[in-house]
Amino acid sequence: MTRVFEVLTPGLSASVQDQGRLGWRRFGVPASGAMDDHAAAWANRLLDNPPDAPVLELLLQGARLAVVEEAWIAVAGADAQANVPTWRIVRVRAGDQIHFPRERSGVWIYLAVEGGFEAERILGSASAYERGGLGRLLTPGDILCRKPDASFRLVPTVAGRSVAWSERRDYDSPPPLRVWPGPQWNCFSEHERESFFAQEWTVTSRSDRAGYRLTGIALKPQPSQIISEPVRVGSIQVPGNGQPIVIMRDGPTVGGYPKIGMVDPADVSWLAQCRPGAKVRFRIVG
């Protein structure tokens, strides 16, 4: 193992994530994994890392890392005015500090290192799921290591390597999120469905890795409770107060609220980067 970073401060929250812990939901274990899999994948791709290489996920702002040993890194995702260029590869050197002082756009920041971070794998994944007792969040003094056999070699004739502008997302203007009708579609009247798709929903501050709570004109499903059944990442549950909760990567595996639909798996990353107060709209797939 090769040491790369010391965590001076994790900021609002910092953890190691990968593509998730697949195949364990029947034991009540959510997949977890990078909240914005689009940005995390780009950070890895820039460094020729395998898609499942663990990355560092940072929430909003405040993280500060000290570089212990020289390495290639790539930062993508939310803009927190990092002191290194983002969406491109960067060579960092021992003694450098990397920090993310001010949130500006988006929620989740991804930092990848050549070869990927070393992290304990539990049930096949390095993703921290602290609430469930599988892995933990990073704390000051933690040392992050990378795989020593990194194959990354920058072609000398290439001045740099960056993500095309067309692939970078404007997190402040998400497109309408595509929704598949959910198992309880019929619990919502025509009028309720129209209300759901016509209105602009606001993401609330009571949103986290488990679920994003939205607020808007309340929906009234009939019945208001069902026998608990499996929920998926992207499932749009409507509890008694009529305000939808979209299940995110650390969310429960089962639930007893009617689900009007499910956000398409490819659009969950857009929602993940919506900050509290952001407006989102939905549209039916097809």
């Binding site: 195949g23 029947r26 026998i227 059944e229 499996p230 595996t253 089962v254």
Partner: peptide, 26 residues
């Protein structure tokens, strides 16, 4: 159903989640 899915998973099955009266197949 769980025993069947464990022993003879249908082609392409990546994950299944049993609940009280339902089972999800992905």
């Amino acid at each position: 159903i769980v025993a069947e899915l464990e022993n003879h998973p249908p082609p392409g099955l990546t994950e299944f989640v049993p609940a009280f009266t339902t089972v999800l197949l992905e």
